[in-house]
Design a protein around this nucleic acid. Sequence first.
DNA 1: CTCTGGCACTCAACTGGGCAGAGTGCCAGA
DNA 2: TCTGGCACTCTGCCCAGTTGAGTGCCAGAG
Lengths: 357, 357
Amino acid sequence: MPDDGKPDGRLLDTRPSVRPLDERRLAVLRAIVQDYVGTEEPVGSKALVERHNLGVSPATVRNDMAALEEDGFIHQPHTSAGRIPTDKGYRLFVDRLAEVKPMTAPERRAIRHFLEGAVDLDDVVARTVRLLAQLTRQVAVVQYPSLTRSTVRHIELVSLTPTKLMLVLITNTGRVEQRMVDCPGPVGEALLGDLRARLNGMAGGCRLPEVPTVLEDLPAGFEPADRSAVSTVLAVLFETLAEQNEERIMLAGTANLTRFNHDFPLSIRPVLEALEEQVVLLRLLGETGDSAMTVRIGHENAYEGLNSTSVVSVGYGSGDQSVAKLGVIGPTRMDYPGTMGAVRAVARYVGQILAES
Amino acid sequence: MPDDGKPDGRLLDTRPSVRPLDERRLAVLRAIVQDYVGTEEPVGSKALVERHNLGVSPATVRNDMAALEEDGFIHQPHTSAGRIPTDKGYRLFVDRLAEVKPMTAPERRAIRHFLEGAVDLDDVVARTVRLLAQLTRQVAVVQYPSLTRSTVRHIELVSLTPTKLMLVLITNTGRVEQRMVDCPGPVGEALLGDLRARLNGMAGGCRLPEVPTVLEDLPAGFEPADRSAVSTVLAVLFETLAEQNEERIMLAGTANLTRFNHDFPLSIRPVLEALEEQVVLLRLLGETGDSAMTVRIGHENAYEGLNSTSVVSVGYGSGDQSVAKLGVIGPTRMDYPGTMGAVRAVARYVGQILAES
DNA sequence: CTCTGGCACTCAACTGGGCAGAGTGCCAGA
DNA sequence: TCTGGCACTCTGCCCAGTTGAGTGCCAGAG
């Protein structure tokens, strides 16, 4: 058992692994995952040695398989059937056996070209999600750039009727939020202009969460008669900021779910149901680390309906920090290296596009 | 054959019906449709007379069935199986045998209450589509109020950098569209204010399609030095108006498709694909008459993937005219009276809500 | 100690026959 | 014109037998 000394806390085995996984056994697991992902059928020892030159006989492979099964990495549906990887097996595969498959140069060009055609933020998100669904042939999810990390580009006040205003908040990511404001009394143009100027002067460029602190003392700077109107506007503005958690999500590629009717005949329903719940999707993406790519396999997903799916997600953003997440949802039996490559590439390019605009 | 004299062009029979459909035969067809919708299984003569008191024997019903089959209203999957309605049979049912089932008072209250909680246009549409999906247990589609019929409530110009503006268009339906404008040269605050005032003065309250005509001569009223900037802004504004066809649609209830795995095991895919194509959905709703409810059954749908589904749709709007469409998509074997009742009720209440806000 | 070939065993999947049941069409009679 | 009876036709289901892929185990070679 040479060169297996790396400590690896991610191996989910609770007892310290009695049988230190040697190279060949890992190679067998890798081959099983690859074959199973390709054929969608349990893979047997004989087929394995035929398709991969492991340099050993089927009997040897069988011994390794027995060991892998005992450790919970693979599993056989019934005696005298081939093996399929367990969630734990996929986990090991992703952590130690697979490399993210980089996109080819033409693919990268195509991604970039497709995203560059976008005209506004909605379009960027729409194109991204379609692209991701097409590249991975799975269900793609893209979160709109969050308000949390964004900064104020402009705050606009528009008088609709004497007592009714429209408040428009524009962020540096191009997102626009508007709200109606019902003021207690009429608001003159002069006050409106003054308020507009001070709002933008004080809050312009601020991170959104900091805005309430920055503007806290604003009403004090106005005539007592105007303060209630100012406070009303501020209240609505803060409410808008607080509603950042009402974040939007775009979805594409649900038709790809039917590619797995093979063993997905019934389990497609809970997945569709989950996809309709923005809350579930948001939580799903919320569990994504900011910069590193996150892979949640099968039962690692908190939401029960997604127990037979895997989620590959990553943050993206303009500049160096992530402002939102995106990812794909597919069967646990997915092409992890390819999917991770596509997700990473798309996230990078969206970030670039956002930074440019 | 009494009281069957109404001329009915919608009967798809090409040759003038040799056998004038008498009352009982129609009753049999109605019973077949109702039973089949309920049980999802071919319905035989014996079961029919047991469940509906037709006052005749199975043998008689069999004769009627044979006639109905010859005329193409029903069809048997194989000899010695029950009958199922054809698209033509459903058509006759919808046109002449079914009455729209009105919602009960509690249902109406629930609808109204649910929709009244909405805070903005997005929320109205989101709530409507969810509600419709839940009421009909099918896939619901709601189109955003179209820009075509809307009027200008306000146009706002915001200076972001000396040469970069943001144009915000607010319609009376609460929809907000924003676009960036890159001006050829710097634009001062004075010009901006002037332009803003004139835009709103001239175009405020106009129907959107009329705006270009109304504003056509606007640049001529400005200093020659400012005209190129004004023209640029107008160009972007007109472009925004022209992009009304890029209409948005919201969807819900796709998980309901799986309720029909009974015989929908494979045909769910084309439906999901169709649902992902905004263009297809828009065309689908576009075929809806403005005021009357439209029902398209099976092959009556132009889009091939929806050949085994029916679409029930209707226009809705604030006030007396329709500004957009909504509808549901389900299997041809659907509860037409109930679905039509729900669609009609929801459309009415959304209209009311929009008129109030 | 590790790998290999051989062997017996297991079990899902396919096949074909037989049976039951639902439903039909047709015909003679009320 | 409707009804009851009758023979017929299918599908769906159950049952058994067979096939084949795949396994576990073991003894022997390196």
